[in-house]
Amino acid sequence: MTGTVEIRDVVKRFGKVEAVRDVSFSLPEGETVALVGHNGAGKTTLMKLMLGLIKPTSGSISVLGDDPVAGQFEARRRLGYLPENVSFNAALTGSETLAFYARLKREPAKSVAPLLDRVGLTHAAGRRVGTYSKGMRQRLGLAQALLGEPRVLLLDEPTTGLDPALRQSFYEIVEELRGRGATVLLSSHALTELEERAGRVIIMNRGIKVADGTLDELRRIARLPTRIRLKVTGTGLANVPNWLGPVDGWRRINGQMVEIDAAPDRKIEVLRRATDEGAPVEDLDVIPPTLDELYAHFLLTQEAAR
């Protein structure tokens, strides 16, 4: 099985700092992958390696069949990149800037206006980029990454600075490209945002890949408790263990609510009791572990293993 991006045993050292340690993964076509990790975990470094902007200390990388540092441009033409702090020359206008990048990718000049429209910059197309707000620059950055129907999109913290409306349409654009078979790798600290969007998550910690899989797979591995919230009627609150049976972790959160941390194998049991005829339960919510919690869990277990 070969993907559009193949990373094998890659190590990248900057002097004494080991930014990426022995990382391997493969990204297939038509998948959105989230790359998460704390500040300095090596996310940006991994993207730069895929772009051939820096050379790996050891290991091999292939992107669309090419070695990115070999100076082959065929792959780069089919690659879109949005750097984490995107910046442009202040003197040119938005459409001049995009036209420049389009020429470098050998895209026709007529592709510029529709792209600007897509990111909602048409009204500012004739203004100097120096006068743009941060969000507008980010939109322009997004527009250049989308030039020429990329097969691989590397987006480094793409939604920082975007307003909620564009955030929404940004994920729509990404989903559309993915649907047409593009590989999308996006790094972000906004984990809740990624939760519904990314088919797969790669968690990095200090340059090491600590977890890699779909959200469901990660939940299974982590065995984190599911939170169950019960709205209790009448006097039920006074004698919870009586009707719920012995549960490890439960607490009151207000005069009416009880929250239970149910381990994966106890989940169904707790739910059965709570929905039993005699149980004083009016309403319930089941909250699976969030990506935030999974992330924290994987970091902790890896730290403990060190």
């Binding site: 730069k48 780069r76 033409r77 990149y81 702090n85 995107v86 442009f88 990718k105 250049q144």
Partner: peptide, 14 residues
């Protein structure tokens, strides 16, 4: 320093 080189060099240009 401005960060524009990073983007430029990610394009198909040597």
């Amino acid at each position: 320093e401005r960060g524009t080189m990073l983007l430029l060099l990610s394009y198909p240009v040597a």
